[in-house]
Each structure stands twice: as C-alpha cells, then as structure tokens.
Design a protein around this nucleic acid. Structure first.
Lengths: 225, 225
DNA sequence: TAGACATTTCTGGTATACAAAAACTCGTGG
DNA sequence: CCACGAGTTTTTGTATACCAGAAATGTCTA
C-alpha cells in the first residue's frame, strides 16, 4: 500500500511493532529529533514514517505540537470495538464459506495449541497463539482488502485488547469461544461463525466496565481533546 | 486525523477532491516537481501530501518509480465492494436504532430531493443528492469511527461508483431502493434497513458484469502488478 | 535492421539548512 | 507567594541541495 523509501518503511515497521506490542504506550511523545538519532537517519524519513503511521491512526500529530502514540477517548474505544466485532464477524462468515480444507486443518492445529497454552496459564504466549488463530481466519475470508482493514483496526486496538487477557479467567473463556467458532467454520455454518465471532470480539456490558477499569491512566484521553 | 503542516493539508484536500470527483483518473501520474510548481510550494509538502493520500489508499507509490492515482485490479474492486456493502449495512442498522427524529426528517427531505432529481434525469445532480443521503445515514449511526472508515472506502471506490449512475435506469432503480431503506430506518427496523442497504450497495451478478464492462481502460490494473 | 550494452537524463529518496510557532524559563511586579 | 510577561530555547514546518536508482535514448555490433 503505502510504500515510501526504504528507510522510512523500516521505521514504520519498527515503530508499529513497538506500539502494537506495548513498548510504546498511548500518549508517549514521538520526538522527531530523538527518533532520527536513535535510528541514525535524518529527520526526513522519520517524518515520513510518522506521516504514514498517522494515516493508519496509530499515532496522532497536532500541527506545530508534535506527534504522540494515539490515545483515544472512551467513546472512541467503544466505537472501535463495535466496528471490530463486525469486521471480524464478516471475516468469520466468509471464512466459513471459503476456507480451503488445508487451512481449516491449520486452524484446528492452532486451536489445539491455544488449548495447551491456556492450561499453562501463560497469558503472553496465549496472546501470540490467539493472534495467529485470528489471522488465519482473516486470511481465510479470501478478501485481502477486508483482511488489511481488519488488521489495521486490530492494531489500533492492540494496546487495549492486550490488557484484557491478564484478567483471571479471561483466557479460559476466550479459548472456549474459539472452540465454538472453530466448529462453526469447519462445518461451514457461516452465520453461526459470524455470530459467535461477533460475541467473542464485542466488548459490551460488564466486560466493558471491566476493561475500562483496568486501562492505565494515560491510555485514554480526557474528554476535552 | 492525520494533521500535517498547513500547506500539506491543503494539498491533501485538493488532490483528494480531484481524485474523488474524477478530475484525476486512476493511473494518472502524480509528478512531485510538477505538483510543487503548480501549487507554488516546494517538494516537501507535496511529498507529505502524497504520503498521506497513500496512507488512505487513494494513490499508490512504488519506490523509485513515483506515485500514481491508485488503480486497482478487478479482484480488488470486487473485494472492496464486498466490504463497502457490509459497512454501509452496518451504518444503516445502527442508524435505524439510533437516529434522532430530526435527522430522520432530514433524511426524508433528502429522499424527496432525490425523487425530484431522479425525474429530471440529471445524473450528476442526483449523484450529489445521493451522496448526501448516504452521508446522513453514516452520521446517523452515531459511531464516528465507523463513519470515517466508511467514507474512506467510499472515496476509494468513488471513481468506479460514479460510472454506474450513467447507466440508463440505474438512477431510477437506485432511488426506488432508497425509498425502502428510508422506510426501514424511519420505522426503526434495523435488520431490514441493513439488508436493504447491503443489497443497494453490493455489486454482484449481472450488475458486476455491467460495471466491469463500462470501466474505461486504465481504471483497472492488468493482473500482473 | 534488430538487439544489447552503455550513457544520459530524469525522478524520487535523503540530508541539511532555515523560518516560524509553541513551550519553557526566569525575572519582575502585585 | 503567585501571576504575568518578555526573552530564550526547543521543536516542528518548509525550502533547497545533493545523491542514487531507474527509465529512456543512442550507438555499436552482429
């Protein structure tokens, strides 16, 4: 999609990883000068990288006031989860209809892996496997545009989703939901797959309260932007 | 969202308008130097503007080979319409549940306007009113993230959607479909609104063949990218 | 005449220099 | 002690200069 020079592209990837994996947290300031010396390039590619990231929404830049890792309002968070649920549901629906047999096998294997990790209660390892599970479904929808779109929203929500898994019981529940989705997809029940995925991803009711309660201060903007 | 300097922001808006309204067509080359002298600025803001547009997918830039107005493959077109239908359906579903009474009134008024213009068979004027109709529904979903996301995809499809309305009978059919959607939303029938909107936007079967038949050469990439 | 190789030219990628605006500091006055 | 303001500093936005890679062109040879 957005291909800039080689240096800038590298920076985009590195910064993106740092943001998605939580090394850089929402609200962190991204100073052009520091970044440029840290990576040993001039400010130009740094600016281009920030520009690209701003386009995908991972960072926010205010004119003449610099750029920070995007932090969102509570309203934004709710809205984005609402859209995320729909996008993932669509992926699941299409995957149930279109996924090749070999990919279903792969998905089954990943489901098993999640099962194992879930028992060991290693939240971070489970998170990895969980990401893989979902990505195989994204790919299974056979709509690369939808796949990109979904991944983009997921990346933007990553800092907040990550928090959820550290809650006791969440991993086990998540894994149980995977089983249902897996079954629906492997039997080709598109609507059921969509419905289950929607429920799996949506954050509503008490789950929303729980999430908001554990979001560290600074991850969310005050109402006055 | 992506705020850069003032000059760059202006350029983004101007270029975006030119692309969406069809002044610049898919495949057109966007030479940095020409643009910079045409707008009387240096190459830097031009590059930043192109960068931003590349982020939203309206232009494509290949390293060392310059940037062009994004042209997509047939597969991309199909994929994007598939997602577009789902996003607009979601907007309609939420709008049916959430729209304030006064906004429903506005929508009814716009529906009437479309009716009038449809009778005069002025495709361009109808296109305008049609855009407004849809935008009121976007706003009615009360999810600004979804609204932005939907508008973004719509903009990317604009060059291709525009073509459809110049087909005989399409305007009348489109307008009839609006009536159904309008009715579903004003009576709060969310699922019906979603379903009708999905059908309204989706391009499938013969409609897809028709669209592909009238897309000018150059609007679509050959398979070998 | 056709094809391949070399050269040239053009365009994009990067670095640096300069200008302008915001943030910070420090001092003064209430 | 706090508030306010002028001057300094920091940081972003823009312009320009330089470099490198790719396409185009021209020439030489088979």
């Amino acid at each position: 999609m957005a291909r800039n020079g080689k240096l800038a592209t590298d920076l985009v990837q590195k910064l993106e990883r740092d943001i998605v994996t939580g090394v850089l947290k929402p609200g962190d300031k991204l100073d052009e000068r520091s970044l440029s010396e840290r990576f040993g390039v001039s400010r130009t590619p740094v600016r281009e990288a920030l520009q690209t990231l701003a386009g995908s929404g991972l960072v926010a830049t205010m004119p003449r006031r610099g750029t920070i890792v995007a932090s969102i309002t509570v309203a934004d968070l709710i809205e984005m989860f609402e859209v995320m649920a729909e996008l993932e549901a669509m992926c699941a629906r299409l995957a149930a209809r279109r996924m090749a047999r070999v990919d279903v096998e792969k998905l089954l294997a990943l489901g098993g892996e999640c099962d194992k990790l879930q028992e060991h209660a290693d939240a971070d390892a489970y998170y990895e496997a969980n990401v893989n599970f979902h990505e195989v479904i994204y790919a299974g929808c056979r709509n690369s545009f939808l796949e990109r779109q979904t991944k983009n929203v997921r990346n933007r929500l990553a800092p907040y989703r990550r928090l959820q898994l550290h809650r006791p019981g969440r991993v086990k529940k998540s894994n149980a939901e995977h089983a249902g989705i897996l079954e629906a997809i492997s039997t080709g029940d598109a609507e059921r797959a969509a419905k289950l995925m929607h429920q799996h991803v949506a954050v509503q009711g008490e789950a929303l309260n729980d999430l908001l309660a554990i979001v560290p201060r600074g991850y969310l903007e005050p109402l006055a932007s």
